[in-house]
Simulated scan of single mutants.
Amino acid sequence: MTQDEDNKKSKTIANAEFVVTESSDLFDFLTLKLIHQSRNNIKSLLIHKQVTVDGGVVTQHDFPLKEKQRVGIVRSVIRGQKENEQLQIIYEDTDLIVINKPAGLLAIADHKNGLSAYHLLTDYVRRTNPKARIFIVHRLDRDTSGVLMFAKNEKLKRALQDNWGSLVSLRGYVAMVEGRLREKSGRIHSWLKETKTLLVYSSQKAGGGLEAITNYQVVDETPNYSLLNIQLETGRKNQIRVHMKELGHSVVGDTKYGAKTNPLKRLGLHAHKLELRHPFSNQLLFFETEVPENFKTLAAKGNSR
């Protein structure tokens, strides 16, 4: 891969630590270790104080490293008063903020609830610029966790929203559903409508609502539950939840769409991956979060016997 090709694709990274084996400047060291990060993204890590050397934050590009020092990458965390008010920032630059939204937190406030990811992030950006604003680009259900993107200016927000379907190349989710699926992979294609009571339902009649396509694959299963990888070809309201109900395997904890069990004490749906093309720079951005630990623990129970 050439440097230009590397700069066009940006991949987020989890918290990490590296041991220095020979003397080097910090920026050069990071470019060698973070091979999927563009130079601009590495600069962003330094600017936003997400790089440490032996536990201390360093922002200086040419900071001299010595053998055996430890260089860490620390993702920012915005802490609220409750556990589900803690936001992990998985990517930030001058245009974008991408977070790992916890289950139970609204993306943006409604008339009943004032606290939201939007509220917490607005407070965060205004710590350094009292006039700063953020703009929501897409949404996740309150009880769905995972990758959620915000723009830092209205021009980018509009460009993303107006071209979302053509810019996004991957929308990956993981879902814990009830039961064991007979078909271990498949494609669900239907048209979704919404009732006056805001319940979404599926129709096989072409044109009978908004077209919705969901691809799924079983990655693990127990006698009572299945863990699925899901890729969306469309992004409709409640799409995965409705399609899983239609399949006869509701998402766990989703009583609205037929679930009878709640082993995770939350909705079993997590936005795992998002890949899209930046509308202005043409850079390919890829964001990924870890599968929640309780999903993996429940899935592993079927293999522990």
Rank of each mutant, 00 (worst) to 15 (best):
L140T: 10
L140K: 12
L140A: 05
D141E: 08
D141I: 00
D141Q: 09
R142K: 10
D143I: 07
V147R: 06
L148P: 06
L148H: 06
M149L: 15
M149A: 12
F150R: 08
F150Y: 13
F150N: 10
F150V: 10
F150H: 12
K152F: 03
K152V: 01
K152A: 02
N153H: 07
L156D: 00
K157V: 01
R158V: 02
L160Q: 04
L160T: 01
D162Y: 05
N163Y: 03
N163A: 08
W164G: 13
G165P: 05
G165A: 14
S166M: 15
L167T: 01
L167H: 05
V168L: 03
V168N: 06
L170R: 01
R171W: 00
G172R: 11
V174T: 14
V174W: 08
A175F: 09
A175R: 12
M176Q: 04
L181G: 09
R182K: 15
R182A: 14
E183A: 07
E183Y: 07
S185A: 09
S185H: 11
I188Q: 05
H189P: 15
H189D: 14
W191D: 08
L192T: 10
L192C: 14
K193F: 06
K193C: 12
T195C: 01
T195P: 02
T195R: 08
T195M: 02
T195L: 03
T197P: 00
T197G: 04
L198Y: 15
L199N: 09
V200W: 13
Y201R: 15
Y201A: 11
Y201C: 13
Y201S: 14
S202A: 14
S203G: 13
